[in-house]
Design a protein around this nucleic acid. Structure first.
Length: 256
DNA sequence: ATGGCTCCATACTGGAGA
């Protein structure tokens, strides 16, 4: 079972790239973030025509998440991260596909930090951590995936010293990620590639992709029930080089 | 220290992203 995550940065503007990527790499499940489309403007028919079932939670202008499957029914569990009825951002959707619970998330960026946006990031992170603990308690196969907007370690950024004050790399952010993973989650990419330089994002400025000046911020966290089923993982770097690409590249794992 | 680029909105400019 191949599961992928891709921050598309606008699902309608990205549609040709998205469809090409789906056709060439054929993930069984694809989690999308940053749809940047209201619920009724999601390109449902194009996704169906590509052979995928889909559920999504859109929002005007910003955020938005989706889960696609070409291996059968998507059983939606929830489309809101519990813990704050006031939070109206579309940043979370959760479903069971093929007996694996898949949480597709878009964690807030948090810049500028410090400030209210950073506070929102940390409080969202705490809600995620609380919910993740409840998922672990079910002792079932769970994947937490998406754009975490977290650079976990200095190994995950081209020039760590430039990022120390950034919301993606500040000590509070790294500590929150550490606290989450310490519950018992496995960082799939790092389990298979503990020493490699692996990035999932390159900004649009100054030929960052050409210089490989990137970040690793899109992650797969696996519950203990999946750890021994992980057989492969990678980043579809080539997609970042395509015309009209997102600033993120897709990331994927294989489960046996 | 700043801005570089790209997306979307209702747009010829601004907010947000990371």
């Amino acid at each position: 079972m191949k599961i992928a995550t891709y921050n598309v940065n606008g699902v309608n503007g990205r549609l040709p790239v998205l469809l090409r990527w789906l056709g060439e790499t054929m993930p069984d499940v694809a989690c999308l973030q940053e749809l940047k489309a209201p619920q009724e403007k999601f390109p449902e028919q194009a996704i169906l025509d590509a052979g995928y079932e889909v559920i999504w939670h859109g929002q005007k202008s910003w955020n938005g998440v989706a889960i696609l499957s070409r291996i059968g029914a998507i059983k939606e569990i929830r489309r809101v991260l519990p813990g704050d009825p006031e939070d109206v951002h579309s940043r979370y959707i959760e479903a069971v596909v093929n007996d694996v619970l898949i949480a597709c998330l878009y964690l807030p960026n948090g810049n500028p930090a410090p400030g209210p946006k950073f506070d929102y990031k940390l409080s969202w992170f705490e809600r995620l951590t609380t919910h993740a603990k409840q998922l672990l308690a079910q002792e079932i196969p769970v994947v937490l995936t998406g754009d975490f907007n977290v650079i976990p370690t200095p190994q995950d950024v081209y020039k760590p010293e430039r990022w120390v004050d950034d919301a993606l790399f500040r000590p509070e952010t790294r500590a929150a990620f550490q606290k989450l993973t310490a519950q018992g989650w496995t960082d799939a990419i790092r389990k298979l590639y503990p020493e490699e330089k692996i990035y999932t994002y390159w900004d649009y400025f100054r030929d960052a992709f050409g210089r490989d000046a990137g970040l690793r911020i899109d992650h797969f966290l696996l519950s203990p029930q999946l750890e021994t089923r992980l057989t492969a993982a990678g980043v579809d770097r080539q997609v970042r080089g395509w015309e009209k690409s997102s600033d993120h590249a897709p990331v994927w794992i294989e489960l046996k």
